[in-house]
Amino acid sequence: MTAGRPRAGVGGRIRRHPLLALGFVLALGAALFFLARTVILAAYWMDPAHHAQPVEPWMTPGYIAHSWHVPPEIVARAMAPDGRLPRHMTVEEVARSRGEDPAAVIARIEAAIAQSGKAR
């Protein structure tokens, strides 16, 4: 059926446009790579163990409270147990103003969130 035009086939075109064919293979490979990553990451994030957004230095008390579904005062109080409550300051800024390591502030916030969860 297809005999008679052997050089007009896909193989012929690949030989005539090797760069185009290489680009096609590379793009297809990249598409499959990112597709696999999308599936793997979706599975990772579907796992309930990875559901909540971990507390990070850039976050504000309002955001942490919103994200963990706890009252903002609990987070703010944990960030600054003594003194004025931070509102729009980030964990990093609070830690710096108190001369603390951000990790120490994060640990207090996580403890307060866990405590609040138990209380409910």
Binding site: V10, I14, H17, L20, L28, A30, A31, L32
Partner: peptide, 20 residues
């Protein structure tokens, strides 16, 4: 990653059509 996959697939699609 999903937009990366779609972008690469679009490039592959255009190049593939051109080849075919």
């Amino acid at each position: 990653n999903a937009t990366g996959a779609l972008a690469a697939a679009a490039v592959a699609g255009v190049l593939g059509l051109h080849l075919l």
